[in-house]
Design a protein around this nucleic acid. Structure first.
Length: 121
DNA sequence: CTTCTGACA
DNA sequence: TGTCAGAA
């Protein structure tokens, strides 16, 4: 990991700063942490300290939410990202994997846990 | 004053 | 998700 990535992953902001920077409530920010979408560190006083990376993810989450994607969908999007990274490292990506990822990406674009296909538009 | 955890009229 | 309490 280079210095640039190191700085972006350095936890330095208290939740208050993150709230003003992302327009999210403390409740939401903590909830997304429970959903393992971000992993802020804790300081000596058990206060959460966020990094620029955490803020970027929070901002992305806010955009997905604005597009109408629910938590289940957002989680899947990040799960797919993890798989993509793993595949890049081991170049184990087959044509069939690509097809499946694109398929899931489409489904994730709008919530999944919804009943029928009646909510496409 | 700011943040944390847990809980729910 | 909001919000309130009690503690740190």
């Amino acid at each position: 990991m280079n210095e640039k990535e190191l700085r972006r992953s350095m936890s330095v902001f208290p939740i208050g700063t993150v709230m003003t920077l992302t327009d999210l409530t403390a409740r939401q920010i903590r909830y997304y942490e429970e959903q393992k979408l971000i992993c802020p560190e804790r300081n000596e006083g058990n206060r959460r300290m966020y990094s620029l990376n955490d803020i970027d993810v929070l901002l992305e989450i806010k955009d997905y939410l604005a597009e109408g994607i629910n938590m289940a969908g957002i989680k899947r999007i990040y799960e797919l990202k993890e798989n993509e990274e793993e595949n890049d490292e081991r170049s184990t990506l087959t044509d069939d994997d690509v097809r499946r990822i694109l398929q899931d990406e489409f489904l994730a674009l709008r919530g999944i846990d919804t009943k029928g296909p009646s909510r496409f538009f």
